[in-house]
Every structure is written in C-alpha cells, then in structure tokens.
Design a protein around this nucleic acid. Structure first.
Length: 606
DNA sequence: CATGGTTGTCATGTG
DNA sequence: TACACATGACAACCA
C-alpha cells in the first residue's frame, strides 16, 4: 500500500526529496527516513487536496484577522510579541501541541496541507508582501517583480520557488506571518514538508518567528545566498520544531513565553536535544563545545543551515581536540591496559613525591623487594617510571593532578611511563611481524630499562652497561671509588649478576641450539654414510656373485675338456678337480676322493 | 582459554 | 674459597 503511494508520488516531490536527502546525507541521514516521511507526506497530500478549498477560505480569514492585529510591545522583555487573535490563541496554543510530529507521521489527519499548497495560499493571501519579503517562497524573479498591492491578483503558483532571497519583513507582515503560521494546517503542512530534511538537519522552520528579530527566513535551508541573515533569524527552538512536535507546533507567543521563562528549557529543546536524538554519544561533548554559541540563541542555530553544527564528521574531527573527550579517551584507553597497571598505592613514594625515598642512606630495600614490586600488578616499568616522574620531574601540573584527582593521578602517572616505555622500536615490533630477534631485542630493552630504572631509583652513579660489562678489576675499582650503601651495592651486584647470567643464559641457549644444529648435521652425515656403506655392500655382493658364476663356468669348461684313456669324458658328479699346494691340478674321483682321503688318512704319514 | 616459543631469572654445578 | 661461567628449571610474556 505504502509502496504504491511512493510509486504514485509526483516527480516533483521525488526531486524535492532527493535534494533534501542529498543535503542531509552528510549528516548521516539515511534515505529510508525520507522514504517513510515521503510516504506520509504523500498520504497527507491526497487527503489535503480534498479539503483544500475549505482550508484556503479559512486561511484567508485568519490572515485577514492577522493583518488587522497590531504588534504589541512586551514591556518585560522589550520584544515585540504578536497580539493573539481572538480566535487563534487557543488554536495556536493547543492545536499545535496536538499536531505533533507523531500525529503528522502516524495519523496524518486530513487537515494538513501540502507544502506547495501552503505556499500558494500564502501567495494568494499576501501577494505583495510575500513578493517583496518572502525570501524563500519566491524566486528572484518574483522578488524583483514590481511591487504589488494586496489587492492585486493572487500570485500564480508558478512563480513560487524555493529559491530564497532574505529580506526584512515588516511588522505587519510579521504579524501576519505569525498568525498564518500559527494555523495548525499550515504548521502541519510545513512540518510535514520539512520533517523529511529537518529531522536530520538543523534547518529551521519558520513557524516560530523570532519577534525580537523581525528578519525571517522561513525556509533557510534553501537560503544559500545569505546564510548569516538567515541564521540570525532562527532560534534553536525552531530547530526543535522540526522534530519535536510538542514544540514545533507551538505558536510564536508560546515559544516566546517558554524562551523567556525558561531559557534552560529552551536550551534543552534546541540543538542539544536535537543531537541527543541523533548523536547521543557526543551530545555532551558537543554541548560543551558549542555552548558559547547558545548565548545568542539566534547564533546558536544561525550557521546550521549553511554549515550544520552536528555533522558526524564534525563530531569525530572535533572530538580529539576536545579536552573532555580526550580525557575520556584516555580513560577508556588507559584503564584496560593492565600492563601499565595502577600501582600508585603500592608505590613507596606515591605519597612523598618531593623527595625520593630511595635516598643514598635512608632506603634499604633489597633487590628481592624490587622483584616483589615487579610482581605487582603495576609492572616495574610503571613503578619506576612513576618514581622518576615524581622524583626527577616534579611537575607542578602533575602534582596538582595527583593531589586533586586520584584517578587522574594514577592515569597521569601511568600514562607517562607507558609513553616513555613505548619507544619506536617497541611499537614497530608490535606492529610489524615480530621476528625473533626483534622480540629478543624488545624484551632485552625492557629488561634493561627495568634495571636502569632501578639504578636510577637508587641513584647509582653508573650505567647498567658499565655495571654488567666492565671487567672484574675495573668493576671493583669503580665500586671502590664510589661509596655506596648496602642497598646500592646489593642492587649493583644483582644487576651485574643478572646481566651476566642473562648473557650466559643467552650464550647457553645459543650453544644449545648450536649443539642441536650440530647434532642434526652429524645425524644427517651419518645417515649419508650409512646409505653409502649399504650401497657399497650391495655392490660387493653383486660382484661376488658374478665372480662365483664365472668360476663355476670355468670349472665346467675345464671338466668338459678332460678325457680318459678311452676318450670318454669325466662326469662332474663322479670326479672333481682339486689343486695341490704346489699349484698342480689333479682329477679326483668323488667317491675315490673320500676313499683316497681315507687312504691318505690311513696310509699317508701326514 | 590452551599452547608453544622466547626470554629473564634463580639455584646449582663446574672449572 | 671466591669467582665466573654453564645449565636446568621456573615463570612471565606473547602470538
């Protein structure tokens, strides 16, 4: 159903929606919003056409009354407030409240009029004044047209154009405008027309003219030529009218009363409330940042049509610069960082930042104490950096923070060490792919900085490198030159021991790795040797087998060449060839062989 | 959250 | 015996 209505919407309306949407898309508004409003508007338009003539007559009557009305000076505020027409006060005070945005969105009573229809009505009712003064409804050609008297014919709707030309409005016309705008039909119409865009933008609506400022720009969103004049004419409440039905439908007098009675309420109803809806996260920041603008209500919204104050881009771009937000960011960023930890309570000198507790002779905790501190949630980096930030950099500002704000103290004290600790190398190590050497270097640097911080804490007059890398004689000489207390000596010894042991462990692991690599290399070589020997063995077996075959062939060949006295060949199964020790070869019968052997055994003296 | 790699540190052994 | 070094073991950290 609604989709069909959208389809049947006129091309003009679609173009208007497109324009408005394009204007508001920068503010994060999505097209669906407008589509919905557009549907509502179309629905409203159809129903309004039915009652168009009635409303036109009614509007003419109201405007005639408005013309007769005189402006009244408010003695309290010194502002010109319109005298409420006899028949309109209740209407302007109650009916607009009823014609809230919700009503216009959901119910869309058929009393509302279309935007163009209202403009046409205005042109018909006040041909001359509108021609001269209405900056929005008439284009430049209409404005530059010759002055027309109220009796002149109705301005053709074709002349109506959204192009603005801000001009001043006479008090009479202003009163007439207010009366006209107080009409619920026109308000509904205008709201309906403008809500599509003003919901997400801060374009003002003209239904609450600023009495003290007779300049009106009823459709400043189209006022691209004179933003300042336009901006000065719009109060924040008018912006609220664009999305808050309870306010936007108020009569100007009512708005004025509200503004005079409760500026705070007015402020709450203005851009701040507007932003609370669309930018709830940044409303506080923005309200603080833009608060100065609200001193002048007109200025508070003056720039909105041309330069929206609450674009998301502005929010995010301004957020880093805002002190409050920056602090908030620090809160959110630093708090979860357990690495830096909050160790102000455990820090021995957190309460005595003026003088170091690690004096040359006063403080005597050993290295084990240091290690216990390392085990604390607050790492040694943070602890010692905290000491240094207080001992060696007694910044007044920091002191003030530490005294006034406990949380700020810890944060400040944590932030500095962390910033100090995160050197570029470490950051790069975290960002880039961590190679082993990089990580090693990183951790080594961390450890080194920890010992350095300890040394600084005890005010040891040597560098850690000296303590660790000096030869024994030089180190002893150096220690003898400086009179150090027990804590310092213990720390120096521990630093040296740890440094040496660290290097030794690194060398040990390096050797271990080298041994592993060497063993792996040996294993590979042994495997190769094994393969080679196996191959040689197989080759030897092959050769042996071949030689045996050759020998057997030769044996048979020799045997086949032997003949007895009768010329018969000897059978290999009956005879065999044997070689004596002197090299001579004998043919020996196999059976005789054993026999001969037995004979040899029997008769041979050997 | 579990897991494996890396590193620092300690305790102990060795020369 | 003191010292330096080596090494196994443990814990912390990190990906």
């Amino acid at each position: 159903m609604l989709e069909m209505e959208v389809i049947h919407s006129t091309q003009q309306d679609m173009e208007l929606i497109d324009i408005l949407w394009k204007q508001d898309i920068d503010l994060g508004a999505r097209r669906e919003v407008f589509d919905y409003n557009h549907r509502q508007k179309e629905h409203e338009l159809r129903r309004q056409r039915e009652l168009e003539e009635e409303k036109r007559e009614h509007l003419v009557q109201e405007q005639q009354k408005a013309l007769l009305a005189q402006l009244q000076l408010d003695e309290e505020t010194g502002e010109y407030i319109p005298c409420p027409p006899p028949s309109t006060p209740l209407q302007s005070a109650v009916t607009p409240l009823e014609a809230t945005q919700n009503v216009s969105f959901t119910e869309q009573s058929g009393d509302a009029m279309s935007f163009d229809e209202c403009l046409q009505l205005l042109a018909e009712t006040f041909p001359v004044e509108e021609t001269e003064n209405t900056p929005v409804c008439l284009d430049t050609t209409a404005v530059s047209a010759p002055m027309m008297s109220p009796e002149q014919p109705v301005l053709p709707p074709a002349i109506l154009s959204p192009l603005p030309t801000p001009q001043r409005i006479t008090p009479d016309l202003e009163q007439a405008w207010m009366e006209l705008l107080s009409l619920p039909e026109l308000q509904q119409c205008l709201n309906m027309q403008m809500e599509d865009t003003l919901e997400t933008t801060t374009y003002p609506l003209p239904n609450s003219p600023e009495v003290q400022n007779p300049n009106y720009s009823f459709y400043p969103m189209t006022d691209l030529t004179d933003g300042k004049t336009n901006s000065l004419n719009v109060c924040p409440a008018e912006f609220m009218n664009t999305f808050d039905g309870s306010v936007h439908s108020m009569a100007p007098a009512d708005l004025h009363q509200i503004r005079a009675k409760s500026p705070q309420a007015n402020a709450n109803l203005t851009a701040e409330s507007f932003c609370e809806i669309y930018y709830p996260d940044v409303i506080l920041e923005e309200s603080s940042g833009q608060h100065g603008l609200k001193e002048n209500e007109s200025n508070a919204v003056c720039d909105i049509p041309n330069k929206p104050l609450f674009t998301p881009l502005d929010f995010y771009s301004h957020s880093p610069g805002d002190a409050f937000d920056r602090g908030k960011q620090n809160l959110t960023v630093e708090m979860p960082d357990s690495d830096s930890g909050i160790s102000s309570n455990t820090s021995p000198n957190a309460c005595s930042p003026g003088k170091s507790l690690y004096g040359n002779d006063s403080y005597g905790y050993s290295d084990s104490d240091m290690e216990e501190m390392d085990d604390n949630p607050g790492s040694a980096e943070s602890d010692y950096s905290e000491m240094f930030s207080l001992n060696f950099q007694p910044d007044d500002h920091q002191m003030a923070i530490s005294v006034s704000a406990p949380l700020g103290q810890t944060l400040q004290q944590e932030k500095n060490p962390k910033q100090h600790r995160t050197d570029p190398a470490e950051e790069s190590g975290q960002n880039s792919a961590p190679f082993t050497k990089d990580k090693q270097k990183k951790r080594s640097e961390i450890r080194l900085s920890r010992d350095e911080q300890r040394a600084k804490a005890l005010k040891i007059p040597f560098t850690v490198d000296m303590i660790i890398n000096l030869p024994v004689d030089d180190f002893n000489e150096l220690m003898s030159k400086h009179e150090l207390n027990e804590a310092q000596l213990a720390l120096v010894r521990d630093i040296r021991r740890r440094g040496k042991n660290k290097v030794a462990a690194q060398n040990c692991r390096k050797r271990k790795m080298e041994n592993i690599v060497g063993l792996e290399s040996n294993l590979d070589s042994l495997k190769d040797e094994k393969e080679r020997l196996l191959s040689e063995k197989s080759q030897n077996i092959t050769n042996l087998k071949e030689m045996k075959q050759q020998l057997n062939s030769l044996y048979l060949e020799v045997f086949s060449m032997l003949r007895d006295e009768k010329g018969n060949s000897y059978s290999p199964s009956d005879y065999s060839l044997q070689q004596s020790t002197d090299g001579s070869v004998f043919l020996v019968p196999r059976i005789k062989k054993t026999f001969i052997k037995t004979e040899d055994n029997l008769f041979s003296p050997l």
